[in-house]
């Protein structure tokens, strides 16, 4: 007994399509089309200055899998992502628990904690480079004064210092995200749960593991997914701090794409790197998107 939609319903659908049209147009032009071109380009050999190229089929991919560069960058990306993400989580959850308490000037403390997340990566990098400075940097001065080191340290020019520094700066810049997300969740845990546990004789530590952590589980999964995706594709921070050096020891995949395209002038190869990187990220994205859909369903 199905029949045509009512006129009104069709008019509304037409209006809905009109409203989304600008979005669709922009998406097609600047996201969908470039996305497919990137895949298409990865089958070519493009010389950047002249933008001329020839079809090379899958050879870019074959080269990629054989080259040490790719595996090196993948390894660095994983070290950076896992290292920085772990620190973000530890500091983030810890700080959120502290800020959840009634400390003095709590909102000021929260602002101060939040600030690094919002400042430009350029600013963050400039400041940290100044802190890391080998001759006049305050960090070297403090470390020598305390007696941990006898000579100024090269934070960014040697390994493993460079990777550790990048991870630390990354953690400093991005842990506020975890703080805010966890804090919001903490504030929504009903006090009654804690009261009940107290009556049952649970101490602070038992309460943390029995109540707080399980309540945080869902939000933590989302945070880990999102931050893993964002850290994996991080370019600015690493590029500006070390440029991928020393040698290629902090070169991650996004840096490799950039270098291949705009320093080594091979856009086809760069596209191949980018496509493979996207495929790796796709795993995380699908998990995250699935979760989001489930959440909306319920």
């Amino acid at each position: 007994m199905s029949r045509q939609k009512t006129l009104l319903e069709r008019r509304y659908a037409a209006l809905g399509l009109t409203l989304i049209a600008p979005t669709v147009l922009i998406f097609s032009a600047v996201i969908v089309y470039p996305l497919f071109s990137a895949i298409y380009l990865s089958f070519y050999n493009v010389f950047t200055p002249t933008l001329e190229g020839e079809w090379v089929g899958l050879s870019n991919y074959a080269e990629l899998l054989q080259s040490g560069k790719f595996w090196n960058a993948l390894k660095n990306t994983l070290i950076w992502t896992i290292g920085s993400l772990s620190l973000q989580l530890i500091f983030g959850i810890g700080m959120a628990l502290v800020l959840h308490q009634n400390i003095w000037f709590r909102s000021l403390a929260r602002s101060l904690i939040l600030f690094p997340y919002f400042i430009s990566t350029v600013v963050a990098v400039l400041v940290w480079k100044w802190l890391f400075n080998d001759l006049y940097g305050i960090l070297n001065h403090l470390l020598m004064k305390v007696g941990i080191i006898d000579f100024p340290m090269d934070f960014l020019g040697t390994m493993p210092n460079a990777m550790i520094s990048v991870i630390m700066v990354g953690a400093w810049k991005y842990f506020p995200f975890v703080v805010i997300a966890v804090l919001a969740r903490l504030q929504s845990i009903p006090d009654a749960l804690y009261e009940a546990a107290k009556i049952d004789g649970a101490g602070p530590i038992a309460r943390f593991f029995d109540i707080t952590l399980p309540q945080l589980r869902d939000v933590l999964v989302v945070i880990v997914m999102l931050r893993a995706i964002w850290d994996f594709k991080e370019f600015d921070l690493i590029f500006l701090l070390t440029g991928g050096g020393p040698l290629n020891d902090t070169q991650t995949l996004p840096l490799l794409v950039y270098q291949e395209a705009f320093a080594l002038n091979d856009m086809g190869m760069a596209s191949a790197y980018a496509v493979v990187m996207m495929l790796i990220m796709l795993v995380f994205m699908i998990v995250y998107i699935r979760r989001t859909k489930d959440d909306e369903g319920s």
């Binding site: 089309y33 071109s37 990137a38 950039y258 496509v275 996207m278 994205m285």
Partner: peptide, 26 residues
């Protein structure tokens, strides 16, 4: 509509370096 919402979320997570080369050429 549903697929569009999905596309939005997907692009929200997409890395810039994937798009930058074609965008540069464009």
């Amino acid at each position: 509509r549903e697929s569009l919402a999905f596309l939005v979320l997907f692009t929200y997570l997409l890395p810039s370096v994937v798009l930058i080369i074609p965008l540069y050429l464009l």
